[in-house]
């Protein structure tokens, strides 16, 4: 449907349809973010033998996040006197816009996708790097030592973990022979890449958690060291934008892991009668749960350990994986 729209002649009707689709999609993602936060708090609660939110909206606290968001929107919007005012206002926008842009390229089923880009995977990784510019801008504009430290850490972490992230995906690209996310899913018909590329999967998962700035790699906002990291000075809806972009990336990265390694919408054998959307949702929820699980169970790493782990462990392992994959692929084609 999107393809037909893209090739039709431009006009206000087209603009309206695209605008409407984007708005609907934004609300779907907002809905996800609302319940992802609730799920995270609930799962964390259960793992720590607590109840989690259970007051607002029935026994399961179903309206807790809605209430929290309303509270955030009603809060006073403070800008420090000595902050760099234009950058302070611009930074949440720079951080959030790429987060929403990357979601457009993810194929949820074989029909439900917004932009079927030839270099979809590269597009995702490239655009997601832009958010760091927003984070560093925010940290500098706040004129606060804690936020500046957080921003520095975010930059160092992004540079260090983007490389193993890309390198680990190269194994998948070698096997599927395409950068297009649809083709990558199609290439997993015979076996998901989590089975064919287990090393790549582990490296990618670790690097993805680091790119998401979640525990155990949440150094840019380590609350016990840096108060709140790069968003110390932010309040109200500007702060909400940073949180929103973080959770939209959470959504996007979980979808990407599902597409790259868990076969996207492809069913398990003999279970093909269940529609693809359900399969995608199931695998996606599993990845989300694993990421929450990580957050609850691992302690935060130290800044120097973070760097050493990225450069001395993940990068060599990812490179070795590329070598191994290329070798195996050549051997398989010979015999």
């Amino acid at each position: 449907m999107i393809q037909d729209l893209l090739y039709s002649s431009p006009g206000w009707a087209n603009f309206g349809i695209f605008f409407l689709l984007a708005t609907v999609f934004l609300f779907v993602i907002l809905g996800f973010v609302t319940y992802a936060i609730l799920a995270e708090r609930k799962v964390m609660g259960f793992m720590q033998l607590r109840h989690g939110p259970n007051q607002v909206g029935g026994r399961w606290g179903l309206l807790q996040t809605v209430a929290d968001v309303l509270k955030l929107l009603l809060k006073e919007d403070t800008i420090p006197k000595l902050a760099d005012r234009p950058l302070f206002i611009l930074a949440p926008v720079i951080a959030f816009a790429p987060a929403f842009m990357v979601v457009a390229t993810i194929p949820f089923t074989d029909k439900l996708q917004f932009a079927d880009i030839g270099v979809g995977l590269l597009y995702y990784i490239a655009i997601s790097g832009l958010s760091t510019v927003g984070v560093v801008t925010a940290s500098w504009a706040s004129n606060n030592k804690y936020s500046l430290l957080g921003g520095m850490r975010a930059a160092a972490q992004m540079i260090s973990y983007e490389i193993p992230l890309v390198m680990s995906v190269l194994g998948v690209i070698l096997l599927s022979g395409s950068l297009n996310l649809n083709d990558i899913v199609e290439a997993q018909k015979d076996g998901w890449f989590i089975i064919l590329q287990p090393i790549a999967f582990i490296v990618f998962l670790i690097a993805a958690v680091a790119e998401l700035n979640r525990a155990p790699f949440d150094l840019p906002e380590a609350e016990s060291e840096l108060v709140a990291g790069f968003h110390v000075e932010y309040s109200g809806f500007r702060w909400a934008f940073f949180m929103l972009s973080e959770y939209v990336y959470f959504f996007a990265m979980s979808s990407l892991i599902t597409v790259l390694f868990l076969g996207g919408w492809l069913p398990l054998p003999f279970l093909g009668f269940i529609p693809g959307a359900v399969w995608f949702a199931l695998k996606f929820s599993l990845v989300v749960f694993i990421l929450i699980w990580f957050r609850v169970t691992f302690p935060r790493v130290r800044a120097d350990q973070l760097m050493e782990f990225g450069w001395k462990v993940l990068l060599p392992v990812a490179l070795a994986n590329i070598f191994l994959t290329a070798l195996l692929k050549e051997l398989l084609t010979i015999f």
Partner: peptide, 24 residues
């Protein structure tokens, strides 16, 4: 030239962050 576009952003987003840190 979509490959070039993606690579441009991939390279420069990191490079700009580093320039910014140098600037700071």
């Amino acid at each position: 030239a979509e490959f070039l576009a993606a690579v441009q952003i991939l390279i420069y987003s990191g490079a700009i962050t580093i320039i910014m840190l140098f600037g700071i």
